[in-house]
């Protein structure tokens, strides 16, 4: 059926959030490629998952330059697992020349030479370097049941190496519906981190995003039909600051997305260039409800 230009039926109207400005640029340096395949991974990453391919170094640097032109304050590298990238150190250096950098990692691949290289950059780069290591339980049993056998020991070893080189990683903990009590307790993680040489322990809690593999994991659940953002929520004047996508964007090999959470949703791809993607965007996905009620941001 032909429609006149600009005409919009009521069914096509989506709940939109204005973008304030670009503060945080997420770069999916390794796409959906990960060395492990966690049962709760909300972007369903794994060793052979190339829905988003690894980005080439020139593409990463182009994204960084586009972000600087747009006025960014900070850069985050994520994936997948960023330390799978063959040129990760060069990319880290490129980022740190431009802005503070955070890296989300499962910690498994951080060997002694890498920890040393990161420690040197933490001490001397022009801007802050922050490492965040995922650990979803403070015992091998509780962590490895979702992250895979042996991952707890490997991640803790990575944390220990980082700490011995002066970097004090933040531990990122997913709040799972079926976690044991200690694994939802700040004090248990603080103690674990101290035991492994982290003198200023910090924990970042990740609320459950019930999408990707988490949606169908035994012990998890899908969203309920009422778990949606409403137009009324967005009337709050601080709404674009409360939702991270009001001030951030995520670049992958497949384009620019509203956030690092919804890179598998075509409706949240905002363009192929960053400059096209700095604009208002929909927030009508069920995952948006988690961001809203938790006032959650993947950064800070």
């Amino acid at each position: 059926m032909a429609t006149t230009q600009g005409e919009e039926g009521p069914t096509t109207e989506r709940l939109m959030l204005p973008m304030l400005y670009l503060d945080t640029l997420w770069v999916q340096v390794t796409g959906t490629v990960c060395n492990i395949a966690c049962k709760h991974c909300f972007i369903s990453c794994g060793p052979k998952v190339e829905r988003h391919r690894m980005m080439s170094a020139p593409d990463v640097i182009q994204a960084l330059d586009d972000g600087v032109s747009a006025g960014l304050r900070s850069i985050w590298f994520t994936g997948g697992e960023p330390f799978l990238h063959p040129e990760i150190l060069a990319l880290i250096d490129a980022a740190l020349q431009r802005a503070p950098l955070g890296i989300l990692s499962n910690g498994v691949l951080i060997d002694e030479p890498m920890a040393q290289a990161l420690g040197e950059r933490f001490a001397s780069a022009p801007y802050n370097l922050e490492l965040r290591i995922s650990l979803d339980g403070c015992t091998p049993e509780d962590n490895d049941r979702v992250r895979g056998r042996g991952v707890f020991a490997a991640a803790v070893a990575g944390i220990e190496r980082l700490a011995s080189h002066g970097l004090e990683p933040v531990v990122a903990v997913s709040l799972l519906d079926d976690a044991d009590a200690a694994s939802a307790d700040q004090a248990s993680f603080v103690q674990l981190l101290r035991e492994h040489g982290v003198s200023r322990p910090r924990v970042k809690w990740i609320p459950p995003f019930r999408i990707g593999r988490e949606r169908s994991r035994r012990g998890g659940r899908a969203y309920r039909s009422w778990e949606r953002l409403t137009a009324g929520d967005l009337l709050e004047p601080e709404a674009p600051l409360r939702l991270q996508c009001g001030t951030s964007r995520c670049v992958t090999s497949e384009g620019v997305f509203a956030c690092p959470i919804l890179i598998n949703e075509p409706g949240f791809r905002l363009g192929s260039q960053l400059s096209e993607a700095i604009r208002d965007h929909p927030v009508d996905h069920e995952a948006c409800h988690t961001c809203w009620v938790e006032a959650f941001s993947c950064s800070v």
């Binding site: 400005y21 600087v68 032109s69 006025g71 960014l72 304050r73 900070s74 431009r98 802005a99 503070p100 801007y127 802050n128």
Partner: peptide, 20 residues
């Protein structure tokens, strides 16, 4: 300039951002 309670630390405030 944009928010009364925004923290501008040395290590997290890049030159490009200051220029903007």
């Amino acid at each position: 300039p944009r928010r009364v309670n925004e923290f501008l630390w040395e290590s997290t405030t890049p030159a490009g951002f200051i220029s903007g």
